[in-house]
Design a protein around this nucleic acid. Structure first.
Lengths: 187, 187
DNA sequence: TTATTTTCTAAGCAAACGCTTAGTTATTGA
DNA sequence: TCAATAACTAAGCGTTTGCTTAGAAAATAA
């Protein structure tokens, strides 16, 4: 009964996500989105409602994307070694053409803190919760550790992961490798 | 021979720094600075040249301010325990009226990454370098550790510190205490 | 073909951005 | 007392911000 969209919403969203990932929320303007997504502002607003709307969907897409490496972690059966691999996988995942972008969720926490949209914050909390549980499963392979130690170490790994995502933006690969190796020397 | 400034540059800079600390660089407008610093835009520009100029001076002031707690660390003589105290001191230092602002330097890395001003980046690198050295001195109290282990653990503590400064923005105190205690359980 | 419905282009909205400037006010040395 | 100098106020510069809208173009059902 009417005209069809000339673009695919998932495709243009993917481009928007990468833009937010590189620049953060405030440093990404609707003109930049327009250019990167390859569609007019009208189309952006008719598909996503607002800039905030594009961002929320970008966060959700990011979580889908990063499943690519959390699945590898969950499927691994070499205990703590699998977690270490996850750290390295994240570095690959968060870098394109030698440009480390950190973690979109961590970047967002840093930019918006508690002032962020409620939906966005709960997306972040739920991701961290799931990641911690994945770490816990792998740590549990070591039967000598009791539950409290396991819980603490899982928390510790989550912060280390967040810290890595931040420092990866300004430190070279050799330094980052040292960081990662040390974390797992101590476990 | 002429009129005197009605404001103290260090005083107004302190207010500017707190604004940048809370909001980041881009999310702090010159109008906000005007309001917070209590002086007109003309005065801001005559004293600091540009918004970037105010920011660079804010970074330098921040480094001076945080000496307050790095000095406590450097003067401590209880080894690793002193580093742990530094982590707790940082939480106090970075929170006012129950509002955790993270670390201005870490926030800046996250916002600007490698795209930041050269002067700003070198200020950040030099701080991290100094902090690592402080950690190293305290870790060295344990004579059973060799040099490579010490270096690795110092690197590790720096990332943990950065990670803490980020997660402190969205997690409650109990969770943060667990994080800190775990870091030092493992050393 | 034609009426209907939706998507598109491109122009434009008010507000906020970093920064400047014209003009007034205060403080000084002579 | 008064010219000289610097610090102030407040208006305004051009640009960019997030978002809207009028009208043309395309796709369908009748």
């Amino acid at each position: 009964m009417a005209r069809k969209k000339a673009y695919n919403e998932q495709e243009v969203l993917e481009k928007a996500m990468h833009l937010f990932w590189r620049n953060g929320y405030e440093n990404t303007s609707t003109r930049m989105l327009e250019k990167e997504m390859g569609i007019n502002q009208f189309s952006i607003y008719s598909s996503f409602g607002s800039k905030q709307g594009v961002f929320v969907e970008s966060i959700k897409l990011y979580k889908k994307k990063i499943k690519e490496i959390t699945t590898i972690l969950d499927n691994s059966d070499n205990g703590v070694e699998g977690i270490k691999n996850y750290f390295y996988d994240f570095l690959k995942f968060s870098t394109d053409n030698n440009m480390p972008k950190g973690c979109l969720l961590a970047n967002t926490v840093n930019e918006l803190g508690m002032n962020g949209d409620e939906v966005i914050l709960s997306e972040i909390y739920s991701f961290i919760d799931k990641l911690k549980k994945s770490f816990l499963v792998k740590l549990s392979k070591d039967k000598t550790k009791d539950t409290t130690v396991l819980a603490k170490q899982a928390d510790h790994l989550v912060v280390s992961m967040v810290g890595l995502s931040l420092v990866s933006k300004i430190f070279d690969r050799e330094m980052l490798t040292n960081y990662i190796e040390t974390i797992f020397d101590n476990l």
